[in-house]
């Protein structure tokens, strides 16, 4: 019977983990018992299993004072400098990623590796001396690329000292990964203290985004937006609104470029040759990219 199997499973795990053997009578409510036992198991793991403790810290489930106390119980460095590296790689490669990461650090006690879920690998680093964390982040990314021939992106935190800060640090790294993959190009390493304009856009409700886009572009423009228009507009913005440089970069006659810019103006009302309109256009495109990522 299914319920009985669940209860057996929970009891077996409880005995394995704690050595406790519970006597179950016939009158007990099995579903309630399973819930109770699983809650005990969870609490036990958080208290006595380092990995679960760190995961709970990452997820913000442990209170400040408790974090310090439990960290000491696990012989974790409570006061020293710490950094968090948050890697994103396919889940099936995590075992190999862990193998590579463990070999990269001279002592095993200088790192802790946990898996928050999905494609994330969190590496908590306790440096023994001052070092360039940005270079270390690139080293992690390059070594994984070279050794395992897999794609990986890495976000890294600023220095922090207290375990109770880990949750906020983790959230910032997650944000850096999210924004980095949408708004930063040509890099697979993202510092969490350089989130840029993207952090203003992050957290906007879809409703606000759609309102802004309707106001800025109108539905028609978004539906008709082609890759060619994106490339034209983006190249123009990158070349500081310079017609000659943009035309040269796109290998087109300046008149063709001007025609395309006028088409954008016709559809959106924005003349991106003018700084104010260019700024509105740029922010609009970032909001559009953000919405597409969230989808």
């Amino acid at each position: 019977m299914e319920r009985s199997e669940q209860l057996e499973k929970s009891l077996t795990e409880l005995e394995k983990l704690t050595g406790l053997k519970l006597a179950i009578t016939d009158t007990v409510d099995e579903e309630h018992s399973v819930t109770q036992i699983n809650a005990m198991l969870k609490a036990y793991k958080e208290r006595y299993n380092k990995e679960d403790f760190l995961l709970s810290l990452l997820r913000g489930k442990i209170r400040d004072k408790e974090a310090q106390k439990r960290g000491q119980a696990f012989h974790l460095n409570a006061e020293g400098d710490k950094f968090l590296f948050l890697l994103q790689a396919k889940a099936e490669s995590h075992k190999e990623v862990e193998t590579v990461l463990k070999q990269l650090f001279p002592t095993r006690t200088s790192i802790e590796i946990v898996y928050p879920g999905g494609e994330e690998v969190a590496l908590l680093y306790y440096p023994k001396r001052k070092e360039d964390i940005a270079t270390l982040a690139h080293t992690l990314a390059d070594t994984i690329n070279m050794e395992l021939m897999i794609k990986v992106v890495v976000a890294y935190s600023e220095v922090f000292t207290k375990y109770e800060e880990l949750h906020k640090v983790y959230e910032k790294c997650q944000l850096a990964l999210r924004l980095g993959t949408v708004f930063t190009f040509g890099s697979n390493v993202f510092p969490s203290d350089q989130l840029g304009v993207g952090q203003l856009i992050d957290g906007l409700s879809p409703e606000k985004c759609h309102n802004f886009l309707d106001e800025t572009f109108g539905e028609e423009f978004i539906a008709e937006l082609t890759e060619e228009m994106r490339i034209t507009a983006n190249t123009f913005l990158q070349n500081n609104l310079n017609i000659a440089e943009t035309a040269r970069g796109l290998h087109m006659h300046r008149n063709t470029l001007i025609y395309r810019l006028e088409q954008i103006q016709k559809k959106t009302g924005l003349d991106i040759r003018v700084f104010g309109d260019a700024l509105t256009f740029k922010v609009g495109m970032m909001v559009l990219d953000y919405l597409e990522m969230e989808r």
């Binding site: 070999q103 990269l104 650090f105 001279p106 270079t135 690139h138 080293t139 990314a141 390059d142 070594t143 690329n145 070279m146 050794e147 395992l148 021939m149 897999i150 794609k151």
Partner: peptide, 27 residues
């Protein structure tokens, strides 16, 4: 990438500090 039969050497390579040269190459 791993099925393309290529090998890479990047700028920020790192050798595994507690492995010998032999083990670094064999890893």
């Amino acid at each position: 990438p791993k099925d393309r039969d290529i090998a890479m050497v990047f700028q920020n390579y790192a050798l595994y500090p507690h492995m010998t040269v032999y083990d670094n190459m064999a890893f």
